[in-house]
Amino acid sequence: MKMETKKRQKQLFGILYACLAASVVAELLVPLLSPPLSHEQAHAAFVWQEIPGFSAIYGFVGCILIIVVSKALGHRWLQKEVNYYD
């Protein structure tokens, strides 16, 4: 049973890595796949959108930041014991 779960987990992580890689590779193919629809879409609205893999970096860093900062705020200030208002 345990071996099975381990194996399954390994498989799932294999799929995840494949998806991660695919999403990064796909970005390189975007200009080939879709001709720009309008003048606005042809140019990125912000400088950072020119960085390759920006979404990936922002997703990863943003996730870490949100969890760490929220938890820090919670521990230092916001979180109280359950009967705080009683």
Binding site: S23, V24, A26, E27, A56, I57, C63
Partner: peptide
């Protein structure tokens, strides 16, 4: 394609975090 790829990257790498 840009939207789909951007959103997929954002969410997939969020999962890693």
């Amino acid at each position: 394609a840009g939207h789909v790829v951007g959103m997929s990257q954002l969410l997939l790498f969020t999962f890693v975090g």
